[in-house]
Design a protein around this nucleic acid. Structure first.
Lengths: 211, 211
DNA sequence: TAGCGCCCCTAACACTGTTAGAGAGAACGC
DNA sequence: GCGTTCTCTCTAACAGTGTTAGGGGCGCTA
């Protein structure tokens, strides 16, 4: 029992951050632990099993850290924090959103966190079924938005050269598509404020739906 | 000039539908066209270049078919149709959402469609910057939601055995997590109505934000 | 001491995307 | 008509991937 599951997951996350999802290879993870690739099959059924664990670990960290932290008086503020902290956690890892979106989450600690979230909504008079709609909608939005962002921007803020604003301007004919061109920064930049605006959209929509 | 880009893209989409994203391999595509794999490099810089074209073609089909079709009197109805038709198009291909989310879109016909969308919003007195917020938020939501759905459900409606409701119930302790357990169908089923509810959330939120 | 189960190894298989380089055949300039 | 060049496809190969089969050392227990 020298090399358990946990060190393998940690090595995988380290590789994820340095080289992205393509760099997460069984041989590289094994090398990180001073071991050969087939050894990993002693702990994991296959690679997807390992990646599932990596994704789950990221979400468990999120759920146990920020998620339950500050008690807010309104469910709106709490829902906003839910989405914002989720995105922040995904952004801490390169390709974090892509990894989580393609993985299966198993750890029951996630259900504990979900349970507390539903309780919180219920204490504000919101039924679990409605709360679930709000949470899953926010979740989908965060995943979709963050995948898009991480395809363009690295965690250090450097931009994929194929996605620069100048590149886009060269492609979009200013005379035929003036409106599309004018919203360039609105589509390719200011991710933080754009994300929060969209998130507020969702929460506000849920609010009006309850009424 | 026997094998152009277009037949290659079509062969790729065919393989995508029969075997999912993992089945889209250069050798398989080439075989589909009665040709060997290296030939594809005459038309495409690399595999990602090819997949980008596949994703773009799916979105162009969507934009030119349903998107501009029926003239609706309210922008709300139009925005709903935007999201619904986008999801429907993604669902027509296995792993459609995953493929689109990871690809770069280049065809300028997409900008033409975007331009018409912005015009439509403008004719209702909505500034392009605001319209862009609405469109990108809906887009992110659709991508995130559909990725999640396609990870669980095949286009023919059959379910990945690891994601059955019974499997979930076995994992979620009914005594400790009663609320989480009660929303099982709300999280694992009824994708169509759940999607539309979430979409209405977003549109309603944009509506209240304008006021 | 004998056996057994845990852990890690080497070797190999069937794939993948990708490149180098050769050759068939049409198109072009002289 | 001839030679050259360009377009397209091929074979062969490389480095790398996930994964499996099977061997062997080490420590525990009977």
């Amino acid at each position: 029992m020298r090399v358990g599951r946990e060190p393998v997951v940690q090595a995988g996350l380290k590789l994820l951050n340095t080289g992205g999802l393509e760099a997460v290879t069984l041989r590289a993870i094994a090398a990180e632990l001073g071991v050969k690739a087939p050894t990993l099959y002693w702990r994991f059924k296959n690679k997807q099993d390992l990646v599932d664990d990596m994704a789950t670990r990221v979400l468990v960290d999120w759920a146990e850290a920020s998620h339950d932290g500050p008690a807010t008086d309104t469910w709106q503020a709490w829902a906003l924090g839910y989405g914002i902290s989720l995105r922040n956690m995904l952004l801490r890892y390169r390709d974090g959103a892509r990894m989580v979106s393609g993985s299966r989450l198993t750890d029951t600690r996630l259900y504990a966190s979900m349970e507390r979230a539903l309780q919180r909504f219920q204490s504000h008079g919101i039924a679990p079924a409605d709360a679930a709609l709000c949470l899953t909608t926010v979740y989908s939005y965060v995943i979709g938005f963050t995948i898009e962002q991480q395809a363009v921007l690295s965690p250090q803020g450097e931009r994929d050269p194929r996605y620069t604003l100048a590149e886009r301007d060269a492609l979009v004919d200013a005379e035929r598509y003036p409106l599309s061109r004018s919203i360039g920064p609105e589509v390719f930049d200011n991710y933080d404020v754009r994300f929060e605006r969209g998130l507020r959209l969702v929460v506000a929509g849920f609010e009006t739906m309850l009424a």
